[in-house]
Design a protein around this nucleic acid. Structure first.
Length: 278
DNA sequence: ACGCCCACCTGGAGGC
DNA sequence: TGCCTCCAGGTGGGCG
């Protein structure tokens, strides 16, 4: 599923369809995703105008003209499909089409999520910090508040691996399994290294590596492995630029002569070059 | 408090 | 073809 670059790509894809548009009809096809959908969500959204489409970490934030924000997480397999000009069309749905938005611009937006790890929730726009999904969330890696000093501070004293620490959304918000492996490779840091050894010079390398890999992935429209597609159906192509993820047994892209290894940490695959990453 | 393991779900890939 | 096992871009709860 989607990590920060994929969610940002989805945001950019759905924003033109939603921004300034009124939701003329919302259809909720099942009562729950990962958690129960908001009580009468379809009724509360119908007639509302979208005033902003933002992102925080891996969440999409759709601000409405009544002071509410629709919070959406794509989970592992959630995606949006844009059907241009399909608003008001007969209801013919694909498997796992869970929520349908028709706008007064004439377009239809369909949320599809086979695994149903995604979620939607409504909250007051001014109170998002109090929402349980956002409490304790770390800094945005592409924002000014993320720095080597800030990262060092949150890693100080942590005994877990740097791989696991970077997956912790309280440390930095938006990285997932792919981009953690990629950022660690780019900064020459072993994923097995204990997090408390990162503060200082290693953090000075890691922070720009995180920023660079995320920015490059956004430029490429994200990474398409299985489920993920951009909202217009286009595939992301950053997967072709992976240096380590999914490349077990292949030669290290840095030309060091080493081979990419796969290990399991905290139940998730990690890919790295034991030669380049110390 | 922290860190690890598991569950939550479905589908695709690969082995036999 | 078919069945069975493993694996997958995430996250939070429960346990030690």
């Amino acid at each position: 599923m989607p990590e920060l670059p994929e969610v940002e790509t989805v945001r950019r894809g759905i924003a033109p369809v939603l921004l300034g548009r009124r939701l003329v009809r919302v259809l909720q096809r099942r009562p729950d995703l990962r958690v129960p959908l908001p009580e009468d969500m379809a009724g509360r959204l119908a007639g509302r105008k979208v005033v902003a489409v933002n992102r925080r970490a891996k969440f999409l934030l759709i601000d409405l003209d009544d002071g509410a924000t629709l919070i959406i997480h794509l989970g592992m397999s959630g995606k949006f499909v844009i059907l241009k000009g399909a608003a008001g069309a007969p209801d013919r749905f694909a498997p796992h089409d869970h929520v349908v938005f028709d706008t007064d611009g004439g377009d239809r937006l369909v949320f599809n999520d086979p695994r149903r790890f995604g979620l939607m929730e409504l909250a007051a726009t001014g109170d998002l910090d109090k929402v349980r999904w956002f409490r304790g969330l770390g800094p945005e890696p592409l924002g000014n508040e993320f720095s080597a000093a800030v990262l060092s501070e949150s890693l100080r004293g942590r005994r877990t691996s740097i791989k696991a620490a970077l997956l912790d959304q309280k440390v930095v918000a938006g990285l997932g399994n792919i981009y953690v492996s990629e950022a660690l490779f780019r900064s020459g840091i072993s994923p097995r290294r204990s997090a408390h050894t990162i503060p200082g010079r290693r953090a000075e390398r890691l922070v720009p590596a995180i920023r660079e890999v995320l920015e490059a992935a956004i430029r490429a429209g994200g990474s398409t492995l299985r489920d993920y597609v951009q909202a217009d159906g286009a595939l992301g192509y950053f997967q072709h630029q992976f240096l380590v993820y999914g490349r077990e047994g292949q030669a290290c892209a840095a030309g060091c002569g080493g081979t990419i290894a796969r290990i399991v940490q905290a139940g998730r695959s990690t890919f790295f070059c034991g030669n380049c990453q110390k």
